[in-house]
Simulated assay, not measured.
Amino acid sequence: MKYVRILFAVALAFVFCSAFTLKDKEKKEKAVYAFGVGASFNDSVVYFTEVQMLDSVELDKSGFLPKRDLYTYQLKNFLEYEMKKPDYTCMIYFSENKSKLEKEVSKVRGKYRKSKGVVLQVLPPAGFMFKKPQE
């Protein structure tokens, strides 16, 4: 009977400890998607990137993209140095839900389409991709 109690206590401890490790395994990394917009007051062309999945990135506890300013500077530097388009203001939109982000793309594009004389140009993924900033 003494061995049964010890065996039962060990089994109970094993079940109790494994319950906490299962929670960590259930916690699954969600993909983060983003797109960028570059606009200038001096030019009628507005540049858009495609919706892209960001490589190995997680949103912080408050739901913000860490180092989002560095992603914005990637787009700004691309427009400035690769496309020779200085003085562009760049913005980045991000979400864990790709369909919501695609709705946001159409909403932002719609606002620019309403403006007369504005030309929308899409930057293909072959030309520009967001990269994880160096730490």
Rank of each mutant, 00 (worst) to 15 (best):
M1S: 15
K2V: 14
Y3S: 10
R5Q: 13
R5W: 14
F8E: 15
F8A: 14
V10D: 06
V10P: 02
L12D: 10
L12V: 15
A13C: 12
V15T: 14
V15M: 15
C17I: 09
C17T: 10
A19N: 12
L22N: 14
L22S: 09
K23E: 15
K23C: 12
K25R: 15
E26S: 13
K27F: 12
K27W: 13
K27I: 10
K27C: 09
K28S: 12
K28A: 09
A34W: 00
F35E: 06
V37S: 02
G38Y: 00
A39F: 05
A39S: 06
A39T: 15
S40R: 01
F41D: 08
F41L: 05
F41M: 08
D43W: 05
S44C: 06
S44F: 04
Y47P: 07
Y47R: 04
T49Y: 04
T49M: 03
V57L: 00
V57E: 04
E58Q: 10
E58F: 02
E58M: 07
D60A: 05
D60T: 03
K61H: 03
K61Q: 07
S62K: 12
G63D: 07
F64A: 13
F64W: 05
L65D: 04
L65S: 00
L65K: 04
D69A: 06
L70F: 05
L70E: 01
T72Q: 00
Y73L: 03
Y73D: 01
Q74M: 03
K76Q: 13
N77Y: 03
L79F: 04
M83G: 09
K85W: 00
K85N: 06
I92D: 04
S95K: 02
S99W: 06
K100R: 06
L101R: 00
E102S: 10
K107F: 12
K107I: 06
K107L: 11
R109L: 07
G110H: 14
G110I: 01
K111M: 11
K111I: 09
K111P: 01
Y112K: 14
R113V: 02
K114Q: 10
S115H: 15
S115L: 15
S115P: 09
K116R: 11
K116H: 08
K116Q: 14
L123K: 08
L123V: 11
P125L: 08
A126P: 04
A126T: 15
F128M: 05
M129T: 11
M129F: 05
F130E: 01
K132C: 09
P133L: 07
E135V: 11
